[in-house]
């Protein structure tokens, strides 16, 4: 009886694992595989393997569209906004973690409560703000909006990171004659490396994949990020399925490759945000 129960539990566990793997990997493999099939093959049998290995769709995409530019725009918007906001929030979190001053607790609560504001609800004011600054249809307008994206999470994670650094180090630095900025930059910042990585990775991933504001704030081809380019292709190639699948492949591949390299770190980052619960 007991062994039957044990085997059943074991079987259930493997079933769950298999289910998760198939659900997560199969859609992507199917898209990639279909990019190598002809239109006719896709329509006649969606599940069949490609008969010939043809890169035509990819060649066509790269010749006709400026993919490196979309990639560069995505990298620019996500990279610059992540670096700048990481510095801003590290400065803020540092003083909140290490100093007593009037309004400290209030500011911390206000900054972290922004987590609850659905980004979409501020659409119109942000649209007006970006337009007012003359940054509509510019990748810099999108970058500016991304600055605000990870505020609550970053302040929270970074504050915990700075609090874990012993105060005696700051005092020692002060005795050695290090000023306020130096103590922050050369002592605390390097020691808060893992908190910085957590916040940075989560912000970068979010901004790299962001679609909503990028689609509202840009219009022309030269300012498109990868997700926006993808949405544009669906209307452009509505009947050329090979091209559609190839475009999807090109758009999702950089993210997957990036993830493959930083896999452990990404998972740890997501888990770390849960500790606040």
């Amino acid at each position: 009886m007991n062994t039957v129960k044990k085997t059943a539990t074991r079987a259930l566990m493997y079933f769950v694992e298999l289910f998760v793997i198939v659900l997560s990997v199969f859609p992507i493999l199917w898209v990639m595989m279909s990019a190598f099939k002809t239109n006719g093959e896709i329509l006649s049998d969606p599940l069949a393997l490609p008969t010939a290995f043809s890169m035509d769709a990819f060649v066509y995409l790269f010749e006709t569209y400026n993919f490196p530019l979309y990639f560069w725009n995505s990298l620019l918007a996500a990279g610059v906004s992540t670096l700048v906001s990481l510095l801003f929030y590290a400065m803020g979190a540092y003083v909140i973690a290490k100093f007593q001053f009037p309004g400290r607790q209030l500011l911390f609560i206000l900054f972290t409560i922004t987590l609850l504001v659905p980004g979409h609800s501020k659409t119109q004011p942000i649209f007006s703000l970006v337009t007012g600054l003359g940054l509509y249809d510019s990748i810099w307008g999108v970058t500016l909006v991304y600055l605000s994206a990870g505020m609550a999470m970053s302040i929270f994670v970074l504050k915990a990171g700075f609090m874990a650094i012993p105060k005696s180090l700051d005092e020692a630095a002060a005795i050695e004659g290090a000023g306020f900025v130096r103590t922050f930059w050369s002592i605390n910042l390097p020691l808060a490396k893992s908190a910085l990585a957590t916040a940075g990775i989560l912000m970068f991933l979010g901004n790299w994949n962001e679609y909503y504001f990028a689609s509202l704030l840009t219009m022309s081809d030269s300012q498109r990020t990868l997700p926006i380019a993808l949405a544009f292709f669906t209307s452009e190639f509505s009947y050329n399925y090979t091209n559609l699948f190839a475009a999807l492949t090109v758009v999702i591949l950089p993210g997957i490759i990036l993830y493959a390299f930083a896999q452990e770190q990404v998972q740890a980052s997501v888990a770390a945000t849960g500790i606040k619960g």
């Binding site: 997560s24 990997v25 859609p27 992507i28 991933l205 790299w208 994949n209 962001e210 679609y211 990868l226 997700p227 926006i228 993808l230 949405a231 999807l248 758009v251 999702i252 993210g255 997957i256 990036l258 993830y259 990404v266």
Partner: peptide, 9 residues
Amino acid sequence: IPNVISAAA
């Protein structure tokens, strides 16, 4: 993996 891909994709 599905979470590191853009929700749009």
